[in-house]
Simulated scan of single mutants.
Amino acid sequence: MTTPVAAGFRMPPEWAPHERTWMAWPGPNPTFEDEGGDALAEARRAWTAVARAVRVFEPVTVVAGRGQGEAAKSALGPGIDVVERDLDDAWMRDIGPTFVTDGRELAAVDWTFNGWGAQPWARWEHDEKIAGHVADLAGARTFRSTLVNEGGGIHVDGEGTVLLTETVQLGPERNPGRTREEVEAEIHAHLGTTTAIWLPRGLTGDYQDYGTLGHVDIVAAFARPGTVVVHSQPDPAHPDHEVTREIAALLRSATDAAGRRLEVVEVPAPRQLEADGGWADYSYINHYLCNDGVVLCSFADEERDTQAAALFRRLFPERRVVQVDARTIFAAGGGIHCITQQQPRV
């Protein structure tokens, strides 16, 4: 079977130019509860705020469930495209394709999706097909992978390095029996990477209800080749205090595909330690880079929100930083990065 790399494709970094952003519309399910309920209405307002923020910088297409397209269009407002497909949940980063390109043609990796490790609350009868639908809508050639993986479980620097998490790609819930070497080979063959940097785990809150069991995109992300932003929990009362110290130390000792020792930029967490009955995993790392912009989470913590915005302005001086309240999205199990998926420009 031909792989993307064998055909000349690779995954560009998120800061490369985009053709558009893809999102999915929250519908009635165990994550958001029933139609007509307050939780679903609040989720739709939160997703809309992100879509409108991204639309300032680039086109946005939202996939809505069957029969929900007109209501989604009305809520999202003008300038945002809406298409209908059968849909279970609303996390386009994970259910959508990972786009790759050879510089002339667009292609898409369709990972195997099993509801974040067959979580008891998850449904994926329709979501496992969304990557193929989006690839078709984008006019992209599709490459299927047997690896159980999600877009939130990977982050690339565009120069051969990928960040992964042991409890995701190597977890028994997703890929039982696969070795580290086998996982790396499949990842590299589909993304065009050559060096994997493995984090031992994710944030504590990501192993609670509606968690992903350790997605990397809430913990660490490349800001540019050789530089990573890393979640930091300054408060020793939170279990992530030790978790994030270990991850930052690991990344400082790591080298990328070009042989560079990584520069690590720590981003302090909001001061709220608990949320929704468990440990808060509020993280500014779960931001989204779009054309000329950074859509950054905020958490009603004026001091830390302001500090994070200033830090990202220094990291991305050529981009405009826009903050969107992400507490409702985190309550459902993710953040701004989790509900967006970039389609690179070719």
Score class of each variant (00 low, 15 high):
residue 197 I to C: 08
residue 135 A to Q: 03
residue 142 T to Y: 06
residue 78 P to G: 07
residue 73 K to L: 13
residue 255 T to N: 05
residue 253 S to K: 02
residue 168 V to W: 03
residue 176 P to N: 08
residue 6 A to G: 08
residue 119 Q to T: 06
residue 166 E to T: 11
residue 137 L to Y: 07
residue 200 P to W: 11
residue 224 R to M: 15
residue 223 A to K: 00
residue 151 G to Y: 05
residue 135 A to I: 08
residue 282 Y to W: 15
residue 2 T to R: 08
residue 17 P to M: 08
residue 6 A to R: 06
residue 292 D to H: 07
residue 137 L to G: 07
residue 79 G to L: 13
residue 65 G to Y: 00
residue 221 A to M: 14
residue 36 G to P: 09
residue 66 R to N: 10
residue 218 I to G: 13
residue 41 A to E: 07
residue 72 A to F: 03
residue 113 F to E: 05
residue 136 D to N: 09
residue 18 H to D: 04
residue 89 D to C: 13
residue 144 R to A: 15
residue 237 A to P: 01
residue 95 I to H: 09
residue 79 G to C: 13
residue 138 A to Q: 08
residue 112 T to D: 15
residue 151 G to F: 10
residue 102 D to Y: 07
residue 334 G to M: 05
residue 308 A to G: 03
residue 38 D to M: 09
residue 18 H to N: 01
residue 92 M to T: 06
residue 130 I to P: 00
residue 115 G to A: 05
residue 134 V to M: 11
residue 305 D to Q: 01
residue 149 N to F: 14
residue 59 P to Q: 02
residue 281 D to Q: 08
residue 13 P to E: 10
residue 161 T to D: 06
residue 322 V to H: 05
residue 36 G to Y: 08
residue 135 A to P: 06
residue 182 E to R: 14
residue 98 T to M: 14
residue 45 R to N: 10
residue 29 N to F: 04
residue 152 G to W: 04
residue 56 V to M: 03
residue 149 N to V: 15
residue 86 D to L: 15
residue 199 L to Q: 09
residue 60 V to N: 00
residue 65 G to M: 01
residue 34 D to E: 13
residue 177 G to D: 11
residue 151 G to H: 02
residue 184 E to Q: 14
residue 182 E to Q: 15
residue 162 V to L: 12
residue 51 A to F: 02
residue 23 M to Q: 02
residue 322 V to K: 00
residue 275 A to S: 12
residue 115 G to K: 02
residue 48 T to L: 04
residue 258 A to G: 11
residue 252 R to C: 14
residue 37 G to F: 05
